[in-house]
Design a protein around this nucleic acid. Structure first.
Lengths: 213, 213
DNA sequence: CATGCCCTCAGTGTATACATAAAGTGCCTA
DNA sequence: TAGGCACTTTATGTATACACTGAGGGCATG
């Protein structure tokens, strides 16, 4: 793997996992020493991060990790709803019903995945991610897929902020199952509605746990 | 201005204006000689172009200018409709009516702008661009604005392909005026409808002139 | 004559040296 | 003592040298 890719992945993970807090200044020399590569690949990595919106150029004086305020979470979910509601409707029109019926069945069994003591909930999140991938594939629109992919980076940051408890994850799994079911049934309006409901619940939960801190 | 910015702007313009055709391989040394700067700023410019989707990495062997096929135009307009319909509705809810009433009045006079012999239609496109900016400002959602901005780059490429004739521009001005009117009236559903109509007409025109070649 | 291997070369990936500009600090002056 | 100017420092911006990988062509052999 290229050094610039490694630098990009490390910095990206550090920002998403909140090891680099918003407002942190990322200087090129500092990061190149920390990552053990020269400034050139670090520059490329910082450029990619800025293009994704994870960092912001700070007036010629390095880049800073982008902040996530409560207002920006509202904006983020407004775009998310716009894109995902449409994607769900298109998937219901174009998707293979069998794929989503299978995902629906698996999502109904999600509580079993959440019973064991995996604190990171890897299997659960992998299942949800498979639903996202299936929707992307069903929509088969590269521009829409790119817009959603760039959005999901920011959403993972928000999720890390929200501290998903078991109760919320159980409810979210049921909401995801409803989305998969609507797509499998080929019902675009129902898919839109299920997605709208899920996103509003998700946003409400995020804001509740965030303001509680 | 920085050399990397100049390289970025030149390459971006060359791609948008179709001086660099889709499929053209952009080699770093070649472009650095053409632009009179070293490889470093050229690399940064190529990275930014790739992040916008104007170029695609060709397996470690340089980057190539992204193609625009008929299929990709359909995908592009599917995302465009998703974003702009929502943006128009939000602008109708949040915008200052006076701003859009003024734009409405100016758009009704657009035929006068199209009467003189400016082949590039600068004043007309500047007016439409002001409407876009006003919608962006009224929505006041940076994520949505970013998504639409990254989309507009590709749309300009398509426009260059379409050869807008005077008849189409007159009709488009009337459609834009209808959008501005609906937003000024604070009517989200009407703004959605007017935007949907405009985008479908626009897509139909683009595809008609494109297949005619 | 065809096929496979090796060599060359072109182009990207990385490191580093140098130029340049901005911000902070300290000193001088009013 | 406060404010402004200049200097120093430290960062980014740019150029260039070197490394490495992959592709294409030529030569040799079966």
């Amino acid at each position: 793997m290229r050094a610039s890719d490694r630098a990009y992945n490390v910095l990206r993970e550090d920002i998403i996992e909140w090891r680099l807090r918003p407002g942190t200044v990322l200087a090129e020399v500092e990061q190149s020493e920390r990552l053990g590569v020269s400034r050139t690949p670090v520059r490329e990595a910082l450029g990619r991060l800025a293009a994704e919106g994870l960092t912001t150029a700070a007036g010629g004086r390095g880049v800073v990790v982008t902040d996530i305020s409560l207002d920006s979470i509202d904006e983020l979910f407004e775009l998310r709803e716009t894109l995902e509601v449409r994607a769900a409707a298109l998937a219901a029109q174009r998707g293979e019903p069998g794929v989503f019926a299978e995902l629906h069945a698996q999502l109904l069994l999600a509580p079993e995945l959440l019973r064991d003591q995996d604190p990171a909930r890897h299997e659960y999140y992998a299942l949800v991610s498979r639903l996202d991938d299936a929707i992307d594939a069903a929509v088969s629109n590269s521009y829409l897929a790119n817009a959603m992919r760039s959005l999901r980076v920011h959403l993972v940051r928000v999720r890390r902020l929200a501290a998903d408890d078991a109760a919320r994850l159980h409810a979210a799994a049921a909401e995801h199952a409803a989305i998969a079911e609507a797509i499998a049934a080929g019902n675009p309006r129902l898919a839109e509605a299920a997605t709208t409901v899920h996103l509003h619940r998700s946003l409400t939960h995020v804001k509740a746990t965030h303001t509680a801190r």
